[in-house]
Nucleic acid binder design. Structure first.
Lengths: 336, 336
DNA sequence: ATGAAAGCGCTAACAG
DNA sequence: CTGTTAGCGCTTTCAT
């Protein structure tokens, strides 16, 4: 195996092209002050040698022209949408992208962000609901940061979020209009509904909504992630008597699990989800859900990050309006 | 914003701890020859300053202790399984992980791999069916490479693949046992069934199977990626007369689209998929499909990569056995 | 327009 | 066991 050490360096290119190292560097970055003929010679030498600049060496002097994305939950189709929006927005820029996968666990996400800092990326875009705000602010003190899906408005970093309060209200209003009064909320474990996370807001807004006159007591059902876990929990809840006629699930994956249980055991119960993942609109489910414009949100997050990298200073928080998509899963009217 | 430039350097730590830079470096890497008291002092100074070593500077001298994953198609649940297996296997090692997202397009994947080379990762694990073998071998000449899902056995890099020929035969045999003779194959565009890709093998094996006595002429139906595209194509095929009683889809996402069309228009047609994505086993679909042990495959790929990084030299190719999961979507017997 | 030279922060000999 | 020092490959003034 050819050791990385003997890969061509900028000096080799300079030698082949018969110019100085500085000249090569300038051509590479197309900086000011290179004659067309010099550019020609250098490019030829670069091609001939298959030269590629070493990013580590470059990064030691200044920008790395890389943006980092802190990411987790690769199986989440909504995150996938936002990721593809961000990648598309970044693909037309001189910035490359590296993704740091966040490990599971309590401090999930901060290691990923730190690893990006250590790599001297020029800016960070992250989906990290669990990371304490103080940690993010520490990092935002060192480089531009845009957080995705956080409602905690910080002056240190930008945020792109969906309007979860509004989306939740829309979903619940839809059920209420159908005549439902006893609506349960199926959501994730308490660790993930803390603070100003999307799931925290959805839960808070649910409680607020159930406070309205005519609505019943709130019933919060907790589950681990995954369709299967949601299914099990719902089977149990239904077995225990199920004092509700509709379920508002915190996201579509849970909703699918709930819908599966409901169809099997209590087809009269309505289910509404959140996110509008692709399978939701399959006629096999016809899941009524709250659509979020993930691609646009991802693209906007990337754009905000670039603005910051280029120098903007004040924090920006942008909220995207969700939109209810009514489908069959919530058609059956409530029982009297 | 605190500029990256004034982040603490190793010299600052040395000053605070009252020792030399080399001593700090040794403690950091816990190299041989540091007294406990020195270690103590240094660690204290590191914590106090919030010092973090700069990976770029470190990489310039030797290993980066990073493995790179070339990845694309973030929405593909099978890839997600293998990714989570790989990440889990890597999480217990001193190696960090960065993921380079592959852009769409013909040479999809090679830019991602090159970008990892430029970052001086210690090894690359990639899912890149479309990249020409020569390009991979060029990279494998510079650092360890493990490819996921490629059947082209190269001496330059390792490979982890599913036994697509066997999986395909199992799926088709199942349909044949049910009495089906006219089986169509729904697969992706020709650009992705070339060479020794998984889809290429599945297609080739399908043709071979249909050559058996008693089977009808092969019918290959092409579609773009996505359930919706597959649905449209199948609606069209059925509208055009559908001279088949069963469909073998190249992967589950296509199978779901096909199943949706079939249920709507020709519920007598059986559908079989490949990959066993989570939604496949939902009773709403009950999709018969070929299960691949994605998590194990990902973990094994990561392990092979580490072996290479640690010095193994001969190439290894490992094939994983798929397993047919029979469900409702293929129960209806063929029409006479 | 071009080139020489001084580092960026770290590691790894080597000396003490 | 600890410290000094010479680079790693690149960018970037500053002369020429």
């Amino acid at each position: 195996m050819v050791d990385g050490r003997n890969a061509p360096r900028i000096l080799d290119v300079a030698r082949v092209a018969g110019v100085s190292r500085a000249a090569v560097s300038k051509v590479l970055r197309d900086a000011y002050g290179v004659s067309p003929e010099m550019r020609e010679k250098v490019n030829k030498a670069v091609a001939e040698l298959g030269y590629r600049p070493r990013l580590a060496a470059r990064a030691m002097r200044g920008q790395s022209f890389t943006v980092g994305i802190g990411y987790s939950d690769f199986g989440n189709p909504f995150f996938t949408r936002m990721l593809s929006g961000a990648l598309a927005a970044l693909s037309d820029t001189p910035y490359q992208v590296v993704i740091a996968p966040a490990e599971e666990g309590e401090r999930q996400g901060i290691e990923a962000m730190d690893s990006l800092v250590d790599r001297q990326v020029d800016g960070i875009l992250a989906v990290s609901p669990r990371v304490p705000q103080a940690d993010i602010e520490r990092i935002a003190g060192q480089m531009p940061v845009v957080m995705f899906g956080r409602h905690d408005n910080s002056a240190a970093y930008d945020a792109v979020v969906g309007d979860d309060a509004r989306g939740t209200a829309a979903a619940l209003q839809h059920l209420a209009d159908l005549g439902h009064q006893r609506i349960a909320h199926l959501t994730v474990v308490a660790a993930d509904t803390r603070g100003d996370t999307a799931h925290g807001i959805r839960l808070r807004e649910y409680r607020r909504f159930m406070d309205r006159p005519g609505m019943a007591q709130p019933q919060v059902i907790r589950t681990n992630e995954g369709q299967d876990a949601a299914y099990e929990v719902m089977v149990e809840a239904i077995g225990a008597g199920a004092d509700f006629t509709a379920v508002f699930a915190a996201h579509d994956d849970l909703a699918i699990g709930a819908l599966t249980a409901v169809r099997e055991l209590r087809p009269d119960i309505s289910v509404v989800g959140y996110d509008d993942i692709p399978i939701a609109r399959n006629p096999a489910f016809g899941l009524t859900t709250v659509h979020q414009p993930g691609v646009e949100m991802g693209a906007r997050a990337a754009a905000l990050l670039l603005e910051r990298v280029e120098g903007r200073d004040e924090a920006v928080h942008e909220m995207f309006s969700p939109e209810l998509r009514v489908r069959r899963s919530s058609f059956p009217p409530a029982l009297p």
